[in-house]
Amino acid sequence: QIFVKTLTGKTITLEVEPSDTIENVKAKIQDKEGIPPDQQRLIFAGKQLEDGRTLSDYNIQKESTLHLVL
């Protein structure tokens, strides 16, 4: 699982696999929060994550925290 922290300070927990794409993660966030993926920007280690890449591409491991910017 990974954590996604929103600007409001809320933390969302997501069940993911390293092979999941960023697009996939955004879809999971939409399921939980109702935020359309095209409004979501995910930041990890100061980098904006691209939809077509996977979590493992960015070396995002379990218990990692991503930041969600709208």
Rank of each mutant, 00 (worst) to 15 (best):
N24A: 15
L14V: 10
P18V: 11
P36V: 06
D20S: 07
G46F: 05
Q1S: 10
D57I: 03
K26N: 01
S56E: 10
K10V: 08
A45I: 06
N59S: 09
S19P: 03
T11V: 12
A27K: 15
L7Y: 12
S64N: 10
S56V: 08
S56H: 10
S19A: 09
I35Y: 12
Q30H: 14
V25W: 01
K5H: 09
I29P: 00
V25Y: 02
K62R: 10
T13L: 11
E17G: 09
K10F: 08
G9E: 04
I29G: 00
N24M: 13
I22T: 04
L66T: 02
H67L: 13
E50T: 06
R53Y: 15
N24D: 11
P18I: 12
R53C: 12
D38F: 10
Q39R: 12
E63C: 14
T13P: 06
Q61K: 12
Q30V: 04
D51C: 05
I12C: 03
G52Q: 11
D38T: 09
E33I: 14
I29Y: 02
S56L: 13
G46T: 04
F3N: 05
I35H: 08
L70W: 09
K28Q: 09
G52L: 08
S56W: 09
S56K: 13
Q40N: 03
G34L: 05
G34R: 05
R41F: 15
I22N: 01
I43W: 13
E23K: 13
Q39H: 09
V4E: 00
T8R: 09
L42I: 07
G34W: 03
H67A: 07
E23D: 08
K32C: 09
Q48E: 15
I29Q: 00
L14W: 01
T11D: 04
R41H: 14
T54R: 11
P37T: 14
E15K: 11
L70P: 10
V25K: 00
A45F: 10
D51T: 06
V16Y: 15
E17N: 14
L66G: 02
K32N: 05
D51W: 03
I43V: 11
R53F: 15
S56F: 10
F3L: 06
L55T: 03
E15T: 12
L70D: 09
Y58N: 02
G52K: 10
I60K: 01
Y58P: 00
K32A: 11
Q40G: 04
E63K: 08
F3S: 05
K28S: 04
I2T: 02
T65M: 09
K26R: 05
R53M: 13
G9I: 02
I43F: 14
T65Y: 07
I29A: 01
D51K: 04
G46D: 07
K28T: 03
R41A: 09
K10L: 12
K28F: 06
E23C: 14
T65P: 03
H67D: 11
L55D: 00
A45L: 12
F44R: 02
S64C: 09
I22M: 04
L49M: 06
F44D: 02
R41K: 14
K62D: 09
I12Y: 06
I60S: 01
V16S: 04
N24H: 11
F44C: 04
T13C: 13
K5E: 08
L7C: 15
E33M: 13
Q48C: 15
L49V: 04
Q30K: 12
Y58Q: 04
Q39N: 08
L14H: 00
G52S: 12
K32T: 09
Q39Y: 08
L70N: 08
R41Y: 12
T54Q: 07
Y58D: 02
S64G: 06
P36R: 08
E50A: 07
A45G: 13
A27N: 13
I22P: 02
S64W: 05
Q48K: 09
L66C: 01
L55V: 07
E17A: 11
S19D: 12
S64Q: 09
K47R: 12
E23T: 09
Q40S: 04
L66R: 01
L49I: 04
D51F: 04
T11K: 08
Q61N: 10
F3W: 07
D20N: 07
I29C: 02
D20E: 10
I12F: 11
E63F: 15
H67K: 07
H67G: 05
F3I: 07
Q61D: 09
K47L: 15
K32V: 13
I2M: 05
P18C: 10
T6P: 04
L42G: 00
N24C: 15
T6L: 15
T21N: 05
I43Q: 07
G52P: 06
K26G: 01
N24F: 11
E50H: 08
A45K: 08
L49Y: 01
E15L: 13
Q61E: 12
Q48P: 12
I12K: 01
V69G: 06
A45Q: 15
D51R: 04
H67C: 14
E63D: 15
L66Q: 01
K5C: 10
L49T: 03
T21I: 04
E23L: 14
T8G: 12
N59P: 03
I35C: 06
E15P: 06
R41E: 13
F44Y: 13
E50G: 04
P36F: 06
T21D: 03
K10N: 08
T6H: 06
D51A: 07
L68A: 02
K10P: 05
S19Y: 14
Q39F: 08
F3E: 03
G9K: 03
I2V: 07
E23N: 08
E15A: 11
K26Q: 03
Y58M: 04
T13A: 09
Q40D: 02
D38K: 11
L55N: 00
I29L: 07
S56A: 11
L14N: 00
I35K: 03
R53D: 05
A27G: 09
V69W: 10
T11W: 07
Q61L: 11
D31I: 14
A27C: 12
R53A: 08
R53N: 11
G52E: 12
L70C: 14
Q30I: 02
G9C: 07
T54E: 04
K5A: 08
